[in-house]
């Protein structure tokens, strides 16, 4: 665990057409820690997460203002090519979304499009390494060329994590990665997140406060587009500074 700041967001405002979804968000994401975004539905936590890899560009009506600095680069600078950004900031989605290709091809996809591999054996090295890192290797090593859609939900989600880390990003965004999974698959993914934080800066959006408490070092609580509270996870959950946060984590709202 380090104490350096990886990403520094300042005065981030997000609009859908004229409706404002996020108001003046300021946050510093710590390098190689797990930061959890929690809050009730519609509070803007997923929208904020998608600012870090410019996935909001896909939505024509969405406009993001403010500075999101990673190193000395502004992620939100329109001159910055999102293709390069997304190689540095990977993402895992709510629903497992393996491509309708083989397991091998799914993991090799990212390295191929970014030119990280030039031949088959390099691709194999990356695929094997990523699958091992995501804890899937033992389950799939003898059927790498089977279709990825044949895996179970939890395996598919770990495959998506393997696919994301195969590009060797610096930051990994996870948008409710366990919401479609059963408790056993969820606990496997949580362990995996714990292992991955040695290499990657992880930001996870979650509906489950228990999950945030289990996996994260820092927690940010969002409510109606405002960042209400941000701090050490153990502080946020044991002695929240804001009454709204307390109401949420004690189950009074949400």
């Amino acid at each position: 665990m380090s104490d350096t700041v990886k990403i520094l967001a300042s005065d981030v405002n997000v609009f859908y057409d004229t409706k404002q979804a996020l108001h003046d968000i300021n946050i510093d994401i710590m390098d190689r820690q797990v930061t959890a975004f929690i809050g009730p539905s519609g509070c803007g936590k997923s929208t904020f997460l998608r600012c870090f890899n410019r996935m909001n560009d896909v939505i024509p009506s969405c406009r993001v203002d403010g500075h999101i600095m990673m190193g000395d680069e502004n992620i939100n600078d329109q001159a910055l090519d999102p293709v390069f950004l997304r190689a540095r900031v990977g993402m895992v989605f709510q629903k497992p979304n393996p491509f309708p290709k083989s397991i091998f091809e799914n993991v090799a996809y990212g390295p191929r499009i970014h030119g990280l591999v030039t031949n088959k054996s390099e691709a194999e090295d990356i695929v094997v390494d990523s699958l091992k890192r995501s804890g899937l290797w033992n389950e799939v090593h003898d059927r790498l060329h089977d279709p990825a859609t044949g895996l179970s939900g939890g395996q598919q989600q770990r495959l998506c994590i393997a696919r994301a880390i195969a590009v060797q990003p610096e930051v990994l965004l996870m948008d409710e990665p366990c919401s479609a999974l059963d408790p056993i698959a969820t606990s496997i993914i949580e362990e995996l997140i714990n292992d991955l934080k040695d290499r990657f800066t992880i930001i996870i959006v979650t509906h489950s406060m228990q999950q945030a408490a289990r996996v994260s070092q820092k927690t940010a609580y969002f409510h109606l587009g405002h960042l209400i509270e941000y701090g050490e996870t153990k502080d946020v959950f044991t002695r929240p500074a804001d009454p709204q946060t307390e109401a949420y984590i004690s189950g009074k709202i949400g």
């Binding site: 996935m55 896909v58 293709v83 390069f84 997304r86 993402m91 989605f93």
Partner: peptide, 17 residues
């Protein structure tokens, strides 16, 4: 589905890719 497109874009694909 949208999720497949998001997955591809999230990995840094261009639209064409």
């Amino acid at each position: 589905p949208r999720s497949l497109r998001d997955g591809a874009l999230g990995l840094g694909s261009t639209r064409g890719e």
